[in-house]
Design a protein around this nucleic acid. Structure first.
Lengths: 315, 315
DNA sequence: CAACTTATGCTCAAAGTGAGTATTGTCATG
DNA sequence: CATGACAATACTCACTTTGAGCATAAGTTG
């Protein structure tokens, strides 16, 4: 089916059947209540590099590139998505490039030279941060522009816009980050959608642009992470070994871009036995001192058991 | 970063930076209460083919291959996973192949010449069907063999086995299909794990083998589908336009490999307003005639709104 | 000490779930 | 034509899980 390629160098490829494969990382940390993503090139690109024969696997290839480019170790990693759209790559004459993207979770290391690359992901998606209420940018810029665009389309298009951005009485759903970005792209409101000139923001919407489809990949990562923290205890990959429940809450809020009910959040965390007390208490500056907790790693296995939602029968 | 490849033929590749990319489909239908998967080569392979420059996108490339190989139209499609493990491909001297896998959902078309390829997925994973209680094959073959293997490893290995296969009082979790297959592979109990001889089943566990890593990809598809029907109304892609609630239930049971509580299942379906009455009733053979329902396509958009699980605050 | 800020405890009602029991239509059959 | 067999539907009931608050407790700062 596929011709063999034995050695270190590939052969001629008459059928156009081989492609360049890029590995791209969305590396996330939460620091000081801000969700941050590792970038290169002045914030315009995600860490990435081609998959090479020398790499043992996709993941190890990714690890090599990220650690080489950012000098930051890669912890928890999961695959995100594989993209290969033609007109969505690096310019009009782009080669056929396949982008295999990964989501990585870590913590920022203080005093590292990697400190340069971290940026708040809300720099790229200002409309995604609802922690201080509905972002003004939506009402002032995004909604009007999208509404104009939607008017020129079908009713279904208007419906998609209303649903994704919580317009017309619809509730906001933080998990739709990717759909929102894709809508803005379709509407030509993000810089990446303007083929020729890459840098001018023009008639677009606020939010930093990135090279090629990196911002789309970032949106994919955010969406995945926002969805995942709800059913898998992955937040802890972003926390220090010991933390207070408020710190944990702030982390979740940073990721979700929404505030949560403090008491109910604690109830949830405790009843699910996600954490255990360390016995120590935090040396805070303000308020009653909080107990310090640590993640109960045991739940990672226990949680594998859960999962269902169908009205099963016992027997 | 990546060298340009202009025309129909690729160039020399000194850095080993280009790879062959295969597109692989797990095409599923449910017929007569059995979950079935489309296969080729006498049930030993999934539909697949290389991604070529001529393809507009990964999905369209996949569609081309599947429709050409199976003469069956492809409906709902979603990406599954991208594999590229070295020692897991087509034999020891395998080229570096990247497999991008997709899950497709359809219905079998009667009287099609594509009818050949459909097989029950439980032919490949007999231990996954719990609809008539715990499969004998687990108690008789799988559990003993895995226990022997686990004894030779760490306590953590024993724990993984117990969890994945519901041993030692652990509950069965139908979503762990992939983990179970991977454990069996690790333990050398599936034919694919024996490098040299491919066909002899020998000391292994019952269940049909497949070429290369196709069975692993099938397991990935099953796991994804089992998980997904719980939070997204995808079952309906597998149903005819009109159906009774019992037919719907049988379909869900076929996929999950477990029986569900009839009354509660109906309550769930109705309270979520997934279906609406057609007014007609089924011309059954047995029992009180059932109302025929159709899927409320409106929920596909409505459902996009749902999704949360965090204890949000209103404000 | 008063004012502030955060940590924790508790309550309450509304929904959602797991497991059954009871009743109602139809068809096939002795 | 009464009786089963087999499903479709209706309802119950006891919990559990959530969404929203109210009320205290325990430090820090001026």
């Amino acid at each position: 089916m596929a011709e063999q390629e034995g050695g270190k160098r590939g052969g001629i490829d008459p059928a156009g059947r081989s492609a360049v494969v890029d590995l791209i990382a969305v590396l996330v940390a939460v620091t000081a209540g801000e969700p941050r993503v590792m970038t290169l090139d002045g914030g315009r690109a995600l860490p990435s590099g081609p998959f090479e024969l020398a790499h043992r696997s996709l993941q190890s290839g990714l690890r090599d590139w990220v650690e080489q480019q950012t000098h930051h170790p890669l912890g928890y990693v999961e695959q995100l998505y594989t993209f290969a759209d033609r007109d969505r790559g690096a310019g009009p004459a782009a080669a056929r490039v396949i982008s295999i993207s990964y989501l990585g979770l870590t913590r920022e290391e203080v005093g590292r030279d990697s400190a340069q690359g971290w940026r708040s992901w809300y720099d790229y998606f200002p409309w995604e941060d609802w922690r201080s209420g509905p972002p003004a940018v939506i009402e002032k810029v995004v909604a009007p522009a999208l509404t104009v665009w939607a008017e020129t389309g079908s009713a279904e298009r208007r419906h998609r816009v209303a649903l994704a951005f919580g317009l017309g009485g619809n509730p906001w759903n933080e998990d739709l980050t990717l759909q929102r970005y894709e809508l803005l792209y379709e509407a030509g409101l993000v810089a990446e959608a303007q083929q020729p000139r890459a840098d001018e923001q023009g008639s677009g919407v606020p939010g930093r642009a990135m090279l090629a489809d990196h911002r789309r990949i970032l949106a994919t990562g955010i969406a995945r992470l926002r969805a995942k923290i709800k059913y898998r205890p992955v937040v802890f990959e972003l926390m220090p070994p010991m933390f207070t429940l408020l710190q944990l809450q702030r982390c979740v809020e940073a990721l979700g871009g929404r505030l949560v009910h403090k008491q109910n959040f604690r109830r949830l965390v405790e009843q699910q036995e996600l954490v255990e007390e360390t016995g120590e208490t935090a040396a805070e500056t303000l308020g009653r001192p909080a107990k310090l907790f640590r993640f109960r790693h045991a739940v990672e296995v226990e949680r594998a058991i859960a999962g269902t939602k169908l009205p099963l029968i016992r027997s």
